[in-house]
């Protein structure tokens, strides 16, 4: 069954207040076109989660679309910090449930396995845990190991309403392949109620059937498949295109002040109708072609 949809249709399936797991990691495979469309459609009060805070979440938080962020810390790597996320934490406008990367991954894993809780060694003794016990006591608790009697920290599973995953290759049913490291994406997909796949390349199911061991996202979990080239721009997609360093620098500089970020939003999000106009705005294929990945290097 074909689940092909436009980006606008896929985004419109997400109600305000939903919990959305995002596939980005710092500045790679971020849901950038998705985030821009969420902002244009005015979806609000989202909970977003990811193991490492990334540019997709920072854009959404800056635009005021996010109420709660469940993450393990994050940055734009050497380009800078998540200025919008940090500013929202400092001013108290964002509820930041901040963990370590593995604790978020374990929460997804418990959700994926249908477990009631998952024990972990991380966080104990830290101020991360002390803060979580204060702001999110429903998600952290000490338990006794029934076999040894030892005390362990237990985490509540995460079951997002939808995982939005930026992939290199998928068919129209949503069977998808992720090339390169997958960080938390597989656990996000399997923990979530449903999945929106945003793919750089759309392939016939026959291609998937020839190498099915590569399938990380099974089509039966997928509600929408959006075929949208350069949809992670300005972040990278391994083996497809490199990050756009110039644009990320512009973003990092713009987000240093609320006014700077507002100007960025007006230009790159509200100044265009859709992703195709965005691609023209940043310079079209003339600008994008040098970013295409070298087939040996993958970047």
């Amino acid at each position: 069954m074909s689940k092909l949809a436009t980006l606008a249709e896929a985004v419109a399936s997400i109600p305000s207040g939903a919990h959305v797991a995002l596939s980005g990691f710092a500045i790679t495979r971020c849901n950038m076109a998705f985030a821009r469309e969420v902002i244009r459609q005015g979806i609000r009060r989202l909970t977003v989660s990811q193991c490492v805070g990334a540019m997709d979440a920072d854009l959404l938080v800056g635009a005021g679309a996010v109420e709660r962020m469940i993450y393990g810390g994050g940055s734009l790597d050497r380009f800078g910090r998540l200025n919008n996320v940090n500013r929202a934490i400092e001013s108290g406008t964002l509820i930041a449930e901040e963990y370590s990367s593995l604790s978020v991954a374990f929460r997804y894993l418990a959700g994926a396995l249908g477990l009631p809780f998952i024990p972990i060694r991380s966080l104990r003794g830290s101020d991360i845990l002390a803060r979580l016990q204060r702001i999110a006591p429903e998600n952290v608790s000490m338990v006794r190991d029934p076999f040894t009697g030892e005390e362990w920290l237990a985490l509540r599973p995460l079951v997002p309403d939808v995982a939005v995953v930026q992939v290199q290759m998928a068919d129209e049913e949503g069977n998808a392949w992720i090339f390169g490291p997958r960080w938390d994406n597989e656990e996000q997909v399997k923990a979530s109620q449903r999945v929106i796949v945003i793919t750089e390349q759309l392939v016939p199911t026959e291609i998937i059937r020839r190498d099915p061991e590569r399938t990380v996202i099974p089509g039966f979990k997928v509600s929408h498949v959006v075929h949208l080239p350069f949809s992670a721009h300005p972040t990278s997609v391994y083996r497809v295109y490199d990050y756009d360093a110039e644009h990320i620098r512009e973003y990092a500089a713009a987000t240093k002040t609320p006014e700077g970020f507002q100007a960025y939003l007006e230009k790159y999000v509200f100044g265009v109708r859709d992703h195709w106009e965005y691609l023209e705005l940043i310079g079209g294929m003339k600008h994008l072609t040098p970013l295409l990945a070298d087939p040996i290097l993958g970047y």
């Binding site: 490492v52 805070g53 993450y71 393990g72 810390g73 994050g74 940055s75 910090r81 940090n86 901040e98 963990y99 370590s100 990367s101 593995l102 604790s103 991380s122 966080l123 830290s126 991360i128």
Partner: peptide, 9 residues
């Protein structure tokens, strides 16, 4: 600033 990432783990 940045938070934990995998550092706490």
């Amino acid at each position: 600033f940045v938070g934990s990432g995998g550092a706490n783990d």
